[in-house]
Design a protein around this nucleic acid. Structure first.
Lengths: 184, 184
DNA sequence: CCGTGATGTTAGTGATGACTCACAACCATG
DNA sequence: CATGGTTGTGAGTCATCACTAACATCACGG
C-alpha cells in the first residue's frame, strides 16, 4: 500500500484546517459542527487540530475573521474594477454578483452573526463589520439611506443563501433575487 | 412550606413551554439550546417537556412557526393601521419600528434562517417566508426592487439585532439603523 | 371512596463531543 | 549515528444532552 503519509508544515496544516473549518462552520454553525468532522475533512487526527488551534472557539474566530476579510476583498475588487468617474455604488453592486457565486461565504456571514451571542465573537464581528460599513461610506460618500440600502441587500442575499433559494425558481425567491441584484 | 405545585392543563403547559423555548432558541439557536434549560425556565421537569412536544426538533419547529406568524401579524397590523389611500409601503415601514421593540422576534428569525440546513426547518421557513413576501407584493403592488428593498431592510434589522447594536451608538450602527428606518 | 385518566417526577442510558496525555514516526543537524 | 525539535496519533476522560422507563400524585366521576 502506498498510503504514504504526506507531511506538511504546521502553517500549511493550519491553512488546510481553516479551509475545511470555514466550509463546515458555514454549513452547520459553531455548535453544530464537531471538531472531529473538520479533522476528518482535512485528513488529520482531531488532537492535532487542537494542538494547532488550541480551542474550537479560536478556530471559529479565525474562520470568522477570514470571512470578513474575504468580504472586504470582494468589495475592494468591485471598487478597483470600476470605470473612473463611475458611481462606486454600482461597482459594489456588481461585487454582489460575484459574492453570489460563493454561497459558502454568504452562509458563513450568517453563522458569524448568530454566533454573536458569544462576547468574543461579537467583538470580532462588530469590529469587522463596522470597518466594512465605514469603507463603503468613505468610498461612495453616499447618504445613510443609500448605504443602509446597499448593506441591507447584502443581508438579504445572505438569507437567501441560507435558505438555499439563490438558484430557486420559487416565485417569491426569484422576485427577491431580481429585485435585489437587478434583472437576469 | 407553601410550594404548592401549580397544576396546569397540558395545553397551558405547551403554551408556557413554547414561550420559554422561543426566547431560548432566539438567544442560542437550535443546537445551542438544551431542552433542560427550557424546562428549567418553565419550572417543569425535562421529561415532561418531551411528553408534550415529542422531540426537540418539533419544539423548535413550533417556535419557528410562531415566529413567522408573529412577523405576519406585525405586518398586518401596520397595514390595518394605515390611513386610507396612503402608501402601504410606508405603513409596513412603520411596522418595522414596532418589530424593533422585540429583538427576540428578530433574533428568532435569524436562528430560523441558519437552521435551514435541516430540510424540515427549511420547508417551514421557505413556506412561511414565501407567504410573507407574496402578502407584501399583493398589498403594495410595488415593483420587485421596492419589495426586495423593503424585505432587505428587515433582514438588516435582524442582523443588527443579532449583533446587539440596535441601541448602540457606534457610528456605523447608528448610520445603518437610521438609514434603515429613517431619522429619529 | 375508589378507580381512572391526566399531570408530573426520579433516575437512568447511550451517544456524542471537546479536550488531554502519553507516545510514535520523521527529519535536520552536529 | 545520536540528538532534539517537529509532525502526528491512539486511547482515553469527563461532561453534556436528547430521550426513555417506571413510578408518583392529583382531580374527578360514579
Amino acid at each position: 500500500m502506498t498510503t504514504e503519509t504526506v507531511r506538511r508544515t504546521a502553517d500549511e496544516r493550519r491553512e488546510e484546517i481553516l479551509d475545511a473549518a470555514f466550509e463546515a462552520f458555514a454549513q452547520s454553525g459553531f455548535v453544530g459542527t464537531s471538531t472531529e468532522a473538520i479533522a476528518d475533512a482535512v485528513g488529520i487526527s482531531q488532537p492535532y487540530l487542537f494542538r494547532l488551534f488550541g480551542t474550537k472557539k479560536q478556530l471559529f474566530l479565525a474562520a470568522v475573521e477570514r470571512c470578513l476579510e474575504q468580504t472586504h476583498e470582494v468589495l475592494e475588487a468591485g471598487l478597483a474594477a470600476q470605470e473612473p468617474g463611475a458611481d462606486p455604488m454600482i461597482a459594489m453592486g456588481e461585487a454582489y454578483r460575484v459574492a453570489i457565486e460563493r454561497p459558502g461565504l454568504l452562509r458563513m456571514q450568517m453563522q458569524a452573526y448568530v454566533a454573536c451571542d458569544d462576547p468574543d465573537v461579537r467583538a470580532v464581528v462588530r469590529d469587522g463589520y463596522g470597518r466594512l460599513v465605514m469603507r463603503i461610506a468613505a468610498a461612495t460618500g453616499a447618504s445613510p439611506q443609500e448605504i443602509a440600502g446597499f448593506v441591507a441587500s447584502g443581508m438579504l442575499l445572505n438569507v437567501l443563501a441560507a435558505m438555499d433559494v439563490l438558484e430557486s425558481d420559487l416565485p417569491w425567491a426569484a422576485l427577491l433575487r431580481e429585485g435585489c441584484i437587478g434583472g437576469p
